[in-house]
């Protein structure tokens, strides 16, 4: 058949006028490139008496299709309600319950449980943060106590050293004062001695002066 189509430049005319071939290769409905060609043949053979465009196209489709196809085409409808509808309803309800059993309920429950666990864990983590705060405060208190202790020890040591330093200072001062007194006393003594010596010399000197001045 492919050969015959190849050989003819108008394959469709030969097709529509030949005996009914197999279904697969036949145009069944809107096959775009093939529609215009067989109009003349179908019109001349079958639909001469009709004139309106719609009738022409109907006749065209009828002429293109084999008798069994033509019957089917008459039945072919877009809005063809039948038992399919309730069957789909039943199938849908079945799918809904099956998916609920297999998917929504188990996975949903699992996810909710996991959510709860995660929330619990988060809450417990918040609790430990309070604990951490407490420990922190304890550490701060320990630090404060240690600091106070150190300060006290430092103060004590400072006081002790100050006392010691003052003692030594006092001792040193006393010693210095004593030495000063001693030195002052010896100075006085020397002064008196010198004055005494000067007194005795003064008597001798005045005698000499008197002797020299007064001619004897």
């Amino acid at each position: 058949m492919a050969n015959s189509i190849m050989a003819s430049s108008k394959p469709l005319i030969s097709l529509s006028s030949s005996t009914q071939p197999t279904r697969v290769n036949l145009p069944k409905s809107i096959k775009l490139p093939q529609i215009p060609k067989p109009i003349s043949s179908s019109l001349s053979s079958k639909a001469l008496s009709f004139s309106s465009a719609t009738v022409k196209s109907l006749a065209l489709i009828a002429a293109l299709a084999p008798p069994s196809m033509a019957e089917a085409m008459e039945k072919a409808q877009l809005f063809d309600f039948n038992l399919t509808l309730p069957i789909i309803v039943v199938e849908f309800l079945f799918l809904m319950f099956a998916l609920d059993k297999v998917y929504y309920s188990p996975l949903g429950n699992f996810m909710d449980k996991r959510d709860g666990e995660i929330k619990e864990k988060l809450a417990s983590v918040k609790d430990t943060s309070a604990e951490v705060k407490e420990l922190d405060e304890q550490a701060a208190a320990v630090m404060r106590a240690a600091r106070a202790e150190i300060a006290a020890a430092l103060n004590k040591m400072k006081k002790e050293t100050q006392v010691e330093v003052e003692e030594q200072l006092a001792v040193g001062r006393k010693k210095v004062e004593a030495e000063l007194q001693e030195a002052l006393a010896s100075l006085e003594k020397q002064k008196e001695e010198t004055i005494k010596a000067l007194d005795s010399q003064i008597a001798a000197l005045s005698e000499d002066i008197v002797k020299k001045v007064l001619p004897s």
Binding site: I5, M6, P11, P27, P33, A76
Partner: peptide, 20 residues
């Protein structure tokens, strides 16, 4: 082209509206 379309493509791309 006709043959190509007939043999090859229409088997995978035939338009069938309202056929059941």
């Amino acid at each position: 082209i006709n043959t190509l379309i007939k043999e090859g493509l229409y088997e995978i791309s035939g338009v069938e509206v309202g056929q059941h």
